[in-house]
Every structure is written in C-alpha cells, then in structure tokens.
C-alpha cells in the first residue's frame, strides 16, 4: 500500500519545490483547488515510485489578486488542471504555455465553485452552534467540578479506576509506540534512499537539496515543539 504525505508551503516557494520534485523524478498526479473560509487552497499531488509515496503540496489562502506561477513548464500535463482552476475558481496563473483564456469550460456563471450553497451554510452554522454549546457545557462542568472539589477524594479514586480502564482499551486498540517506531523506520529508509540519490547528483545540486531537506526537518521539529 502507498503512503500519503501532506506538506504546507507558502506560495512563493511553489515553483522551487515543484522543480526539486521534478529533479527527484516524482510523477505529477494532479492539481486541484478548494474553497475554504480563508480563501482558496491549492493542492498539488506528486508520486514517488521508488517508495510508493503520494506527496501533496498545499498552498493556502489564494485570493483573486494572487498570481500563481504555472508549472506547465515543468509538468505539461498540468495544463488542463490550471485552465480548469482558472475557469471554475477564478485563480490567476502566470506564464501558462497553453492558456485557453477562460474558455476551457464555457460556463454561464463565473467561478461557480467558490460559491457556498445554502444547504452547506446551514449545516456549517449548525455545527458552529453545536460547538459553542459543547464549549459552554464543558465550562459549566468545570465550574461544577470546582464546587464539588471538597468531596472529590472518593470520586477521584473512582475516576482513576475509570481512566485506567479507558487507557487499557486504548492500548488494546493500537500500540502508539509501535506505530511511531514503524514511522521512524520508514523515515530512515527514505532518508537512506535520498542519500543514494544525492550521491548520484552533481555536488552543487546535492548541496541545495540537502539544505532544503534540513530546512524542512527544522520546520517539522519546530512544529512538533509547538
């Protein structure tokens, strides 16, 4: 089975990232856009045949003013997705090799995919209300707990037993330590493969890729720290 990886990147790093993926021999799978509350997200998917990994680059917060560099120069197959995203979402791409100028899909309305339907809106509002109610309930429960603290000794004992039980079931379900070890092994394998690839590259390029990898590792470490 293949693995999946999602990586968030800023828009200005996009071309550089895609270029390095192309040099590493990744296959381009697709590009798509989606509308969120914060703007439009772009998702680029690539596939690494050597380790069967689907690698996703996510770019967040695109609006109608941002200019997204086209990747058609690197992966020509992207032309249909870029033109589609332009027609359906109104995202602007620069330096397109094959540009249909907004006539790839001829639609009656402009960027229909950016509109949120009333059904969806209602459902989202319902969810927000539920969340608010849950938060209020939790707050109330906390207050009640504080009040009851004096006679909590016996309760605490019971709670401890219950917690022990639930922890037991969690442990039964999945062994997080084993999973982590597994992931670490995979990471090591990947790194070894990467080293092999780097050895074959010319030194200048290898240095660049190494720097990028180090930056990525630092970033993820920082995230973990947070």
């Amino acid at each position: 089975m293949y693995t999946t990886e999602f990586v968030d990147i800023p828009l200005n790093e996009l071309l550089y990232r895609v270029q390095s993926l192309k040099h590493q021999g990744f296959r381009f799978i697709q590009m798509c856009a989606e509308t969120t509350e914060a703007g439009i997200d772009l998702l680029y998917t690539f596939y690494d045949e050597t380790v069967d990994n689907a690698y996703n680059l996510c770019v967040y917060g695109i609006d109608d003013k941002s200019e997204v560099p086209s990747i058609q120069g690197l992966y020509f197959a992207a032309f249909s997705y870029e033109n589609e995203t332009h027609d359906l979402f109104g995202v602007h791409f620069t330096n397109m090799q094959l540009d249909f100028g907004g006539h790839f899909f001829n639609l009656a309305e402009e960027s229909p995919m950016t509109i949120i339907t009333p059904e969806m809106k209602a459902e989202r509002e319902k969810l927000a209300k539920q969340k608010a109610a849950a938060a209020a309930k939790a707050r109330k429960a906390a207050e009640a707990k504080q009040a009851a603290e004096a006679e909590a000794a016996a309760d605490a004992k019971e709670a401890a037993v219950a917690a022990g039980k639930s922890a037991g079931t969690v442990a039964d379900k999945a062994d997080p330590a084993a999973a982590a070890a597994d992931a670490a092994a995979k990471e090591a394998e990947r790194a070894a493969k990467m080293e092999e690839k780097l050895a074959a590259m010319d030194p200048e390029k290898a240095a660049k890729v190494r720097a990028a990898l180090a930056a990525k590792a630092a970033k993820s470490a920082q995230k973990d720290g947070e």
Partner: peptide, 8 residues
C-alpha cells in the same frame, strides 16, 4: 458536517 467540503 454531513456534507463534504470538497470532492475531487
């Protein structure tokens, strides 16, 4: 929610 945000 019961609706999906996006299907691609």
């Amino acid at each position: 929610t019961k609706y999906l945000d996006r299907f691609r």
